[in-house]
Nucleic acid binder design. Structure first.
Lengths: 225, 225
DNA sequence: TCAATAGAATTACCAGTAGTCAGTTTTTAT
DNA sequence: ATAAAAACTGACTACTGGTAATTCTATTGA
């Protein structure tokens, strides 16, 4: 349907504009009129496509989560070994085009919508489940069942923690710093001998190269923030 | 001055009420009138004591940080060994009276104020520095300088991550679960033999007992949330 | 003791802000 | 071509943050 498509295009434009407004003004001061102004339409249009501000923010939240998760999926597709899968998750989460202060600030702002917005809670729950499942699948080749479970949770929270830090702190966290932080954690959590460390480094380099090509591509960037 | 003291009492009451409002309605819907109603006064009074909403939220943010940090300080006072200091930090951060879903939800909500509120940024920076310093001081007996640095950051982000999870997730995170998560991390990060594990368990028990007495006391609770 | 005064609280008010609704234009399907 | 449906507009309401003028209350100093 064309009508349906127009609607979904508008909704996409508007949630992008709303994200922009949150970046610029923060959640509390991102008004519907500012969102409209950024999108080049009147406030009324915003409310024509979203029943209220909460549902607009839900769309923004959903969108930013999917931008991130799509980059994970994209890299995951090219990962052939458990090490590569692990690195795909990490590199995708901290790739330069995505992991920057502005985006992290907006992410932190949007977090605050979750506790009192049931839809956001569902999105967040689904997202968390997916990341955990990805991590478990990558980790289970190295660890027993309970350790896999704990380590997946641990690494997941570390990813969130680094994102939060980058949003809260005045000095930005560099992409390389974040990745090296994750690497340090992995080395501590996973059993390792010389051979596995070599595999691990090799996997990292491979995924980094793929990331530069795939996530750095023009086609990908325009889907991004 | 009595007048000054009245003012500071009012400010404390009002920021407590504002915290309550954020718990009940979320940041976006915690209006000044609701804050006033909770405190049993009119909206005007709120603005008489705080120049605007941002500075009210700053006070709320400052207050919730200090409630938490005071419990750390309180336990820290009773810690005599590095292990005990480490446990003091962990137990204080996840003690039952403080670490519950409502408080964590409010904490997550308040986070979103940070990126666009310079004062909150300063409070958050100071807070982060303090926690890092506590952690470093506890860890430096087990690790070399660079490992101390990394591990302190790592554990700090893990604490934040668990708090965030408890605020975002619909099912609450239990205090014991959070603490056992931290314990697992510590066991992975710190070098350990049988003797150190024994010390470590002993330290944990001691601090837990002290926490039940000190943080569980009536005098302490009324200072709390 | 009691006027002066500073600060606490209330009130009326203003400029936005979310959200509704009735009505108009544009698009789509037949 | 035209009827139906969807996109859009603008005016309106109720509420919110913030200001300012006003009233109330308590201390203080002569």
């Amino acid at each position: 349907m064309k009508t349906n498509s127009i609607r979904s295009i508008r909704r996409a434009e508007l949630s992008k504009a709303a994200f922009e407004a949150v970046v610029l003004y923060g959640l509390r001061k991102a008004t519907l009129e500012k969102v409209g102004r950024i999108a080049g339409v009147s406030k009324g249009v915003v409310l024509h496509h979203f029943k209220d501000k909460s549902s607009l923010l839900e769309a923004v939240f959903r969108r930013s989560n999917s931008v991130l998760s799509e980059s994970v999926i994209e890299l995951y597709r090219h990962a052939d070994t458990p090490y590569e899968r692990l690195w795909a998750i990490i590199i995708a989460n901290f790739f330069k085009t995505i992991f920057n202060r502005k985006v992290c600030q907006a992410w932190v702002s949007l977090m605050s919508e979750v506790p009192h917005n049931e839809q956001c809670q569902r999105v967040e729950a689904a997202n968390h489940t997916r990341i955990q499942s990805n991590l478990r699948y990558a980790l289970k080749h190295f660890l027993n069942k309970t350790d896999t479970e704990r380590t997946a949770l641990h690494l997941g929270m570390l990813i969130d923690g680094i994102w939060a830090r980058n949003g809260l702190q005045s000095a930005p966290v560099l992409s390389e710093k974040a990745i090296s932080e994750m690497e340090y954690a992995i080395l501590k959590m996973l059993p390792h001998d010389n051979k596995s460390i070599a595999n691990h480094q090799e996997a990292r380099l491979k995924i980094e190269n793929i990331a530069n090509i795939v996530l750095g591509s023009k086609a990908y960037k325009e889907k991004s923030f």
